[in-house]
Amino acid sequence: MSSKTKIVVLHMKEVIYTAIFLILAVVAVILLVVMFHGKNSREPNSEATVSTSVNQYTPGVYTSSIELNGNSFDVQVTVDKDHINSVELINLSDVTTAMYPLMEPTLEDIASQIYATQSTENIKYSDDNKYTSMLLLDAVKSALSKAEVSK
């Protein structure tokens, strides 16, 4: 019976490189999981509940002005007796659109939430466009305050 002894030679450089690549792969996987999992938690709740207090509006079209660095434009809100029908930007120049490219997509996101809940309460927005959302939401609230029926 003869046993053959095998000798394995590992170069320390190869071991170190392999360990580094394994660590980088694990970090990349963790980073991807955190990025995509965090994005889902920031999305607005699709099961938004309609507010129990129904606001009564005077039917019509109401506007609120916004001025940014000398460029002004309006947020227009159209309402009927008890519904918010549309929210849109008007008088938005090409210069303003170029300087503030997040205005239109942010308003579309806010408007879809307003249509679903018929309220400006509990509107969710991402951290990427927080200040743009707050500015537009304040303008929408200002226009709606003009539409509310005095009791």
Rank of each mutant, 00 (worst) to 15 (best):
S126D: 07
Y131A: 15
V54F: 07
S93P: 08
K39D: 14
M103A: 12
A25F: 10
N85E: 05
K39M: 15
S72G: 06
N40E: 15
L24R: 05
S142I: 00
T97V: 13
Q56P: 07
M134A: 10
N55T: 14
D127Q: 05
S145D: 13
S133H: 03
I23L: 13
L89S: 11
L24K: 02
V54T: 09
S126W: 00
I123A: 04
D128M: 11
A25T: 07
K146W: 06
M1N: 12
P105W: 08
Q76K: 11
L31Y: 11
A111C: 02
V29Q: 00
R42D: 14
M103R: 08
T18S: 14
K13H: 12
L102Y: 08
T96I: 05
I114H: 06
E88Y: 00
N129R: 05
P44G: 03
S142R: 04
T132D: 04
G38F: 10
T106M: 05
L10C: 09
Q118M: 04
L136N: 01
D128F: 05
I16E: 11
Q56S: 15
E43M: 15
I23R: 01
M134I: 11
I7D: 02
S150V: 10
K81H: 05
I7V: 10
I90Q: 12
L89H: 06
T120V: 13
A147I: 03
M134Y: 07
V77A: 12
G60W: 00
E121T: 13
I66P: 09
M12Q: 13
H11R: 01
P44R: 04
S142Q: 09
V50F: 07
N55Y: 04
N45A: 10
K146V: 11
H37G: 15
N122P: 11
K13Q: 08
R42N: 12
A147V: 00
T58P: 05
A116Y: 04
T78W: 03
G70K: 02
V9S: 15
L22I: 12
N71E: 07
S41P: 06
V87F: 03
N40K: 14
K6Y: 02
Y115G: 11
S150H: 02
L136G: 04
M35Q: 14
T132I: 09
P105M: 02
T5P: 09
T96R: 00
V77T: 14
T5W: 01
V34D: 14
L107F: 03
L137I: 07
M103S: 07
V87R: 06
S41C: 13
E108Y: 10
E88T: 14
P101A: 00
D109G: 10
T78E: 14
L92W: 02
E43L: 15
L107Q: 09
P44Q: 04
Q56L: 04
K124C: 08
T63N: 13
T63M: 11
